[in-house]
Structures are given as structure tokens and as C-alpha cells.
Design a protein around this nucleic acid. Sequence first.
DNA 1: CTGTATCCAACTGGATACTG
DNA 2: CAGTATCCAGTTGGATACAG
Lengths: 117, 117
Amino acid sequence: MDHQRGFQQGEHQGECKAELALKVIQGRWSVLILRELVDGIQRFSDLQRALEGVSQKVLTAQLRDLEADGVVHRTIHPEVPPRVDYALTDLGIELLPVLDGLHAWGERQADFNAASR
Amino acid sequence: MDHQRGFQQGEHQGECKAELALKVIQGRWSVLILRELVDGIQRFSDLQRALEGVSQKVLTAQLRDLEADGVVHRTIHPEVPPRVDYALTDLGIELLPVLDGLHAWGERQADFNAASR
DNA sequence: CTGTATCCAACTGGATACTG
DNA sequence: CAGTATCCAGTTGGATACAG
């Protein structure tokens, strides 16, 4: 085995940056939001339409969390009616390959699930 | 932007394998358990000692989940007193690079957190 | 249009005690 | 040693109504 770097580092004292990353994308809609934003800037209402089933309160909360984590940028246009749009930050863009990795592994895991029936 | 493959695929209809992968490693202790198992087979009591703060009930539950997800293998030795040990499956080993990716991104995210104070 | 404010049900994890 | 069984508190997300 040669995975001697990365999340296994240190004395296994509980502190692990992989967990930090997980906290960021743990939300029920976080990954889905990020996926929508890959296509570019989206307005609040665009996201709400794309993410069928999300309520205003929850969508707002998840976007605020992602913003606080530096993954998403929020722009308020001072107009009437108000317009707000969301975009990935550089940090958010750097997250995309990681999500690709999760996705790829998820496909293999799905195969396992299918096989174990 | 050239991230046109992976978790962004499809018509964004909500079904996403990255979320499936996340479900597997979402547990409070899942990543920590996996990290312990990188070093090789571990007994239940080894894990409980390494993961300071986990209760028997919760550790059992998380291990059962990881086993059901095909990430961990459980071996019962029919002895008295009982001995049970846990190891990564092939699928579990394939998860390690993904966790490395999360870890690496987590470090950059930590930098952001540090900078935004 | 883009939120906030309440209330609430479900789920997760923790404390503790007991068992084969 | 390696669990199970209860009970319980905190958090998350959803339904709904209201507001700038």
C-alpha cells in the first residue's frame, strides 16, 4: 500500500482536513447547487427552479453557508425588483475535480449495491 | 472551463453519484475509521481506543453502515472471548485517493477560513 | 424577486446500563 | 470482548406565512 500522504498524515489525533471539506459539501443541496453553478452565474430563482423541491428558507441557508465557506460568491444588484446572483469562487472551482472523484467512486459503489442483491 | 465530465454529467435531474458517495462517508466517525484501517486490520477495541470519544453503540452502527456499503469487511473469530476485526475492502481502498483529494482541498479551505478573519 | 420568521418532524449521535 | 437496548438532546431540513 502506498497511500502514505494526504488524509492519513499525522498521528491520527482526530484532526483531519478531509472532515473539514466534508462539512462544506454536506448539506442536502450543496452538491446540487455547485453542479448548477458549473454552467455559470445563476440567479436565486434559477437555482430554486433547477433544484426542484427546495424551499426558499433552505436554499437561502445553504447558499449562505457556501458563501461563508468561500465556495460561492453572492452579488446583489440594487434594483427593484431585487436581483441577486451566485457564482463559484476560485476555491469553489477547485472543488470540482474533487466532486468528480467522489462521483467516479460513487459509480463503483453503486455497482456494489446492485451486485449485493 | 473544461470540467465537462464527471458529476456534472446528464441533465442535472437531481440524481448524482457524488451524493451517493457522500452518504457513505458522512458519518461522524466514518473518515476517522477509514483512516485507522489504512494501517491494516484493526479489532473493535483497537478502533474504540483510537477514536477517542466514540461510544460502543455509535462505533458499532458506523461500522455496520460501512460494511453494508461495501467499504469495510468484518471478520468474526469464533472464540471466547469473542474477537472481531475490520479491514478495508477493495472498494474501500479505492476510496483513499478520493479522501486525499478532500483532504487537499480542505487545507486550501482552511487557508480561506484563516484569511477571512 | 429574494429573502426572514415560526413551528415542527425526522434523523444522528451520545450517555448509560445490560448481555452472550 | 463485542456488542444490544433505552432514553435523550442537538441539528437539519421542510411547510407555511409574511416582508422589503
